[in-house]
Design a protein around this nucleic acid. Structure first.
Lengths: 236, 236, 236, 236
DNA sequence: GATGAATGAGAATTCATTCAT
DNA sequence: CATGAATGAATTCTCATTCAT
């Protein structure tokens, strides 16, 4: 990556302490400071939205001057990219941590739990949904390198893989499982977009109920079974 | 009033076109120029996205100076509003024009046709989806008056009403029909968002197929029937 | 004046009705419409201040388009000039109408009444004070022709002449009377400026009381007399 | 804090100037640049008046781009505020520095000197009078915080307090002294406004003479004394 | 590595004025 | 006489980015 090159050049310039040690320490420090900036970015982003999360605002919240940010990120869009990466990581953790508790049919319980974890994550952090859409949609060329894009895509797919696996366990073929997973993903995104833009209120509907209904009908369609509907956990 | 006097005098001077004609023509010209600007706005919007569709850009494309725009629209957001209104109008027309051709079950055919018209409209004009989301979400207070908001909402709901009606014809109660309509809406939005952001490619899925599948399963769930699945018309 | 030239040219162009009649009628109409515009200007000016009284705003209030205004006034500043002229006229009327009612010393009563009329006029129409200051101070060259300037100055002096005359009646020489009149003028202006800018509140003083006090002390200083203090009429 | 760390590290690298010095120098530089901008603002303001002292004009005169100004001032009105604050400071200094030289009655001499200093300050810097009036009158909310407003008001009153104190020394009660001070203030403002707008010339009067006359009459009215009139220092 | 200064482009909007019709 | 369209210059302000120090 362009970034690490820069850093290495810096360490070469003044060689006093053993390079390895220095490199390691620097890298650690570096990582810590990157995190600091990402924290600032995330908080700005949450509170002010994409438009409000200007580089200046992020720098201010991180306790840096704008120029300093460029020591850690090549440009603003790279920060967004890192933010998204980190967001996807948390998403994966949330999905991984989810476990069903359906005695009669454990596999169905896990399916529900995994899908719900995905849904709840974005329901409760609506800005992170925007972030993903913005990045892949409007980003200027330089912001999203092919490699980064690939990495982010992989993370996203990883977050949905538990759902896919569970569908296979429940009797779907590989192809059908992918299709159904994509459909779940689409339904979640659709519900949340409608919710976040206030469109859902027009129809006097509740996003959680819609999602639960969708999962019910999905499970109904599964080859093996006679599942029982479980409600989505209520929002905090 | 001074105004009518003027007009009359004007018509006397030229003694050719009656006042009505003049007024009408002026109004027509005005409308035409508004349209010109809206066209420019739409094209800027399509090519550059919402951020790129600045007043300057719109003016440039319309062959105007920025200031001239303000003779036709009070501010930028009003242009967006008009754009959205016009988009929703076209959407309604598209849905209204759609008619099914399913001999075995006309009602199902119409249901499919109406939903598909909605889907296809936004599939083929992806930016118009963004427009709607932006406007209802981030718009500054002055841009979106409560009345305009109401009108736009009404237009949107009107575009989905045919689907709802058809669901009722097919045996759903009023409440269930609304729920199912909302779910269809969410599914369409979800599929298109995934498609527009390139997410759907990750899963190697085709949006049309996903949509068709969803309609199939919906129809399957309907109380009355034994429908046959019909494919969505292929994209141009 | 440039304006009348234009009008004459117009009447020459299409000579149908006897020129005298036409001229008179046109002039009358013209005057009426000028008044219409001035009314609009005054109302805009009162409600929105100098900055808010843009040509567009004035035109709107007069029921005209901006361009039409230029048939009656060469530019915006000329409107201000006319407004000021008209304001000074009203001032003169107010001062002329004022008459004292002090039985023991009629001359002193009249002096008080005249000065007070002047004071009250500007106290109750603070914007007109601004107008005068703006015009003579910041006006661009073209706005205030020497002739107009002279005319306005004459009007202003005329409004103060009753005070001056009364001072002479009360025993002051011509020179002393002018000096004292100027001082009264300055005191009134000073009090009102402090009042309008809220400065007087800092000192917890009341403008009317200050003015009354000043008049008392002035009268005290007059050669002849043993005046009795009369209070300034309370503000509506 | 990250900030202090940075500074220290910086000072280690150069190992020459201690941090305090660096900070101080930077702060000094900063102050100097603020001053530079204020100078530019003042000159623009003097030559072109408030309307002409646009941010662009100020930036141009300061040798900056408009955007650069915002490193030093949050917005245009803050510049005006700073300008006024600085003006009031000079006013206070001028008044403080003034000392009378009247052997027969030192207190009267001081009174004259203090009032005259106030008068002369604004006579010789007429635009500063406008500035104060504008700021307290028309300023947009954001420009003038209540605290700043309070501070400026305090500065203004401080400049008049010496006059007030002197009046008390000369036998006036606290209330009477405030009234008389306000009256002096009003008279000064009135004379100067008439002078600046050229109105005084109409009456063929001289502002200095008018002011001197007013002070004479004021002193005459004081309880204790038999003062002798002293002329106001002639204008440069 | 970080600062602080500065740039330069761009944002929306407002306005007096002109002019063909 | 009046319109309505349009201009062009002005306004304040924001921002990502660069760079000498």
């Amino acid at each position: 990556m362009a970034r690490s090159t820069t850093i290495r050049r810096g360490s070469v310039r003044k060689a006093a302490t053993p390079p390895d040690t220095r490199l390691a320490r620097e890298s650690t420090l570096n990582q810590a400071r990157r995190m600091l900036i990402l924290d600032a970015a995330r908080s700005a982003f949450f509170e002010l939205g994409l438009d409000g999360a200007s580089l200046r605002e992020i720098a201010k919240r991180a306790g840096y001057t704008p120029g300093a940010i460029y020591s850690y990120f090549a440009n603003l869009e790279e920060i967004y990219g890192a933010l998204l990466g980190e967001s996807l990581q948390r998403l994966n953790q949330a999905v991984a941590a989810a476990s069903g508790c359906d005695a009669s049919s454990p596999a169905v319980g896990v399916l529900r739990a995994k899908a719900e974890a995905f849904y709840v994550f974005y329901r409760d952090n609506p800005k992170e949904l925007d972030l993903g859409f913005y990045l892949f949609d409007g980003m200027k060329p330089r912001g999203l390198t092919p490699e980064l894009n690939q990495a982010l895509n992989d993370q996203l797919m990883a977050a949905l893989r538990p759902v896919q696996r569970q569908l296979e366990i429940l009797g779907l073929g590989a192809g059908a499982a992918v299709i159904e997973t994509t459909a779940v993903f689409a339904q979640i995104v659709g519900i949340l977009v409608l919710n976040n833009t206030g469109r859902i209120r027009l129809f006097k509907q509740n996003p959680d109920a819609l999602f639960a209904r969708y999962m019910d009908s999905l499970i109904h369609r599964l080859p093996v079974l006679e599942s029982t509907a479980v409600r989505v956990s209520e929002r905090g």
